[in-house]
Simulated assay, not measured.
Amino acid sequence: MAAPVAVHLEFGGGAELLFDGVKEHHVTLPSQSEPWDMKQLLVWIQRNLLKERPELFVQGDTVRPGILVLINDADWELMGELDYQLLDQDNIVFISTLHGG
């Protein structure tokens, strides 16, 4: 059984508007049989934090194009994207680069 994982989530560039305007969330993900990964985290965020317009944050089982994801200040593309296994105290930042006109 994998232990609970505490992570710091940050939303910026307008993405915070989908989360009641709250930029930072300190969350503890519950214990589960396998380690948490980014794909599972996105599902958890949708179920527990996302307040409105999920289509502006996720597309299919990943973040929609135009949302930059950083894991501990590194582009998630370098970290394995959806397959990255979360570690306790990871800092995950979602920055929207999409701006309406």
Rank of each mutant, 00 (worst) to 15 (best):
L86S: 00
A6Q: 15
D75K: 04
P4T: 04
S31D: 12
L98H: 08
M38F: 05
E55C: 08
F11S: 07
I71C: 07
P54K: 07
G80N: 05
I45R: 08
T62H: 09
K51Y: 02
E34K: 14
M1V: 14
M79N: 08
L41W: 05
F19R: 02
V69S: 06
L18F: 11
G14M: 03
L9W: 01
A74P: 11
L86C: 08
V93C: 14
G100P: 00
L82Q: 10
L49C: 03
L82A: 13
D75F: 01
I67C: 00
K51G: 06
I67G: 02
L50M: 07
L78T: 06
Y84T: 00
G12V: 13
F94C: 09
F11K: 01
T62M: 12
A3G: 08
N48I: 07
P65T: 06
L49Q: 02
H26R: 15
D83C: 08
L9G: 04
M79T: 06
I71W: 07
K23R: 15
H99T: 00
E16I: 12
P54H: 06
A74H: 04
L29I: 06
R47N: 01
H25N: 01
E52Q: 12
S96H: 07
L49F: 05
N48M: 08
G13A: 03
L70M: 13
E34G: 14
L82D: 01
A15N: 00
Q59Y: 13
L82M: 10
V63K: 12
K23T: 14
L29T: 02
V63H: 05
L18T: 09
R47W: 01
D37T: 12
L56Q: 10
G101T: 06
M38N: 03
Q40F: 00
V27L: 04
I92Y: 11
I71G: 02
S33Q: 11
Q85I: 09
L17T: 09
V43Y: 08
M1A: 14
F57M: 07
P4D: 03
G101D: 00
G80R: 10
A15I: 07
P54F: 04
L70R: 11
R47I: 02
W36N: 05
F57C: 12
H26E: 15
V22M: 08
M79I: 01
V69P: 07
V7Q: 03
D20N: 12
P54S: 05
K23A: 14
I71H: 05
Y84H: 09
M1T: 13
E77N: 11
I95M: 00
Q85L: 02
L9Q: 02
I95G: 05
E24W: 10
H8C: 14
G80L: 03
I92H: 03
G60W: 00
K39Q: 09
F11I: 01
D90T: 09
V93I: 13
H25Q: 09
